[in-house]
Simulated assay, not measured.
Amino acid sequence: MSRIEYSPEISELLGRVRRRPTAGWPWRPGEAVPVGLPVKQSWGWLFAPDGRVLTLVNPRDGIVSLPGGSLEPEDGGDPGAALAREAGEEAQAVIGAPLYLGYLYDRVGSANGGHECARVRMAAALLGVGPSVPDPASGRHYRRLLVSPGLAVELLGWGVPGLRQAHAAVAAAARHLGVPTLADETIEELPPGGCVLPAAR
């Protein structure tokens, strides 16, 4: 097993990571969202060419997340458009065309006023990031880390259901985006000034 490499600054940041309690939403891989079930959120596994994915860490509370969020009127009901917009706002990320992976069924509907809804998961190529700025919607200023998908699941605290979701994302990214199924294990913080990522082989 290869050694996971990271800087002292990342070690200090990861030492403050706090995981949200799991919601237990059932994962529906590859299934279309049923007609009549509203899609309220879209979140993405954004893949660098070496197979790592973008995770966001809020340094104030230690919460880790994938880029994404709620659909807004300007998204026109398109989860892919919502993901691209949210990734740009939260992480200043530029992404390729999103791939639909499936959805999480939220029976309680905490994102939909107490009514059932779907929370879509997608995968996309991470093409680059711009200079780091606070999210205009929340004011949160995220730290942007590239980590292996398996470590992302651990940081997110998603357990076995999260691993199933990660496997679906990796399989789709390997098939359609050309990324390796075994990711680089190095934990890397993307530079505050932004960067462009090379194309996948």
Rank of each mutant, 00 (worst) to 15 (best):
L71D: 00
L71C: 04
E72W: 12
P73W: 10
E74N: 12
G76A: 12
D78M: 03
D78F: 03
D78A: 01
P79M: 03
G80K: 00
G80M: 01
A81D: 08
A82M: 02
L83D: 00
A84G: 06
R85M: 04
R85S: 05
R85D: 02
E86H: 02
A87I: 03
G88K: 02
A91N: 10
Q92G: 15
Q92R: 15
Q92C: 15
Q92I: 08
A93T: 02
A93D: 04
I95P: 00
G96R: 08
G96L: 04
A97S: 14
P98N: 07
L99Y: 00
L99M: 09
L101K: 04
G102M: 05
Y103D: 00
D106E: 13
D106V: 04
D106I: 02
V108R: 13
V108M: 13
V108A: 15
V108I: 15
V108T: 13
G109A: 13
S110N: 14
S110P: 11
A111V: 09
N112R: 04
N112Q: 07
G114C: 07
G114H: 06
G114I: 13
H115Q: 14
E116G: 11
E116M: 11
E116H: 08
C117R: 05
C117I: 08
C117A: 14
C117N: 06
R121S: 05
R121E: 05
A123I: 08
A124E: 00
A124G: 06
A125F: 03
L126T: 01
L126M: 11
L126P: 01
L126S: 01
G128S: 10
G128Y: 08
G128M: 05
V129T: 15
P131T: 15
P131R: 15
P131F: 11
S132H: 14
S132G: 14
S132K: 15
S132F: 10
V133P: 07
V133Q: 14
A137I: 12
A137C: 13
S138K: 12
S138N: 12
R140F: 07
R140G: 03
H141F: 13
R143D: 10
R143Q: 13
R143K: 14
R143M: 09
R143F: 04
R144P: 04
L145Y: 02
V147Y: 03
V147I: 09
S148R: 06
S148T: 12
P149D: 02
P149C: 11
G150C: 12
G150I: 11
G150D: 15
G150H: 06
L151C: 11
A152Y: 05
A152K: 01
E154T: 10
L155Q: 00
G157D: 07
